[in-house]
Each structure stands twice: as structure tokens, then as C-alpha cells.
Simulated assay, not measured.
Amino acid sequence: MKTITEKSFEEKQSAELAIGTFIISSFLFVLYIISNESPNVLVIAWPFAASAIILNTIMMVHLIDRFINLRECRKDIAVKILILLSNIPITFLYYVVVMK
């Protein structure tokens, strides 16, 4: 009898990127609120947000490529994709609050 072992997808960078961008964007958002909506904070926050969008998009393309090519690891990769996508509604909420 054959035993089917499920391989795990050992990439940690995508979760670290998602958590790191979440922590930094949350810090900048709180700093913006505490500073009475100072435009000086936005000078730092907007370039960070633009670079975070680019980096997260690159990581998403990488994960989608791995999802397509590594059939045996799809469950693990799908979880990492969902973690990466979880930043979108949070960032949108921050954007709505800042723009009001």
C-alpha cells in the first residue's frame, strides 16, 4: 500500500510581507490620527503605500504562479494568498478614513 504524504509549502516571505506591511501601515495610520491629520505624515505614508502595493502585487503573482505549478501544495499556497489579500480591506478602510 502506498502512503500519500502531503508536501508542505515552506515559503514564509509572503506572510512576513503581509504582516510587515500591515504593521507599518497601521503605525502610520495611528501616527496620522494622533498628529491631528498632519500632512507631514502623508509625505512618508504615500510612498510607503505605493511601494507596498507594488511589492504585494509581485508576491501575489509569485504565489499564483506557485499555485498553478505546484498541485500538491495548493492548500498551503491558497492560505498564503488569503493572508496577502486580507490587507486589501484594511488598507481600504484606512484610505477612506484619511480621505474624509
Rank of each mutant, 00 (worst) to 15 (best):
V30S: 11
Y95P: 01
I64R: 11
S26W: 07
I34P: 01
S51N: 06
I83P: 00
V30R: 12
F48G: 03
E11H: 08
K7L: 11
K2S: 08
A50P: 00
L17V: 05
L31S: 11
Y32T: 04
F48N: 05
N87A: 01
F27S: 10
N56G: 05
S26F: 10
L93A: 15
E16C: 04
N40F: 14
F67I: 04
T57C: 03
S38W: 04
P89F: 03
K100S: 13
T3W: 05
L28E: 05
S8L: 04
L93G: 10
K100V: 10
L93Y: 12
T57V: 00
H62T: 09
L84A: 08
K75E: 15
N69H: 14
M1H: 04
P89M: 02
F67W: 15
I54A: 09
C73T: 14
L55E: 03
M99Q: 10
I23H: 11
P89W: 03
K80N: 09
F29G: 05
F22H: 07
F67E: 07
S25F: 06
S35G: 07
M1F: 11
M99S: 07
E37W: 04
K80P: 01
E16T: 00
S26D: 15
F48C: 03
V98T: 13
I54P: 00
V61K: 10
T57F: 02
I33K: 14
I88L: 11
G20F: 01
P47A: 07
E6D: 02
F9P: 00
N87D: 06
N69A: 11
K100E: 10
T21Q: 05
S26C: 06
I44V: 15
A78I: 05
V97K: 09
I34H: 07
E72P: 04
R66A: 15
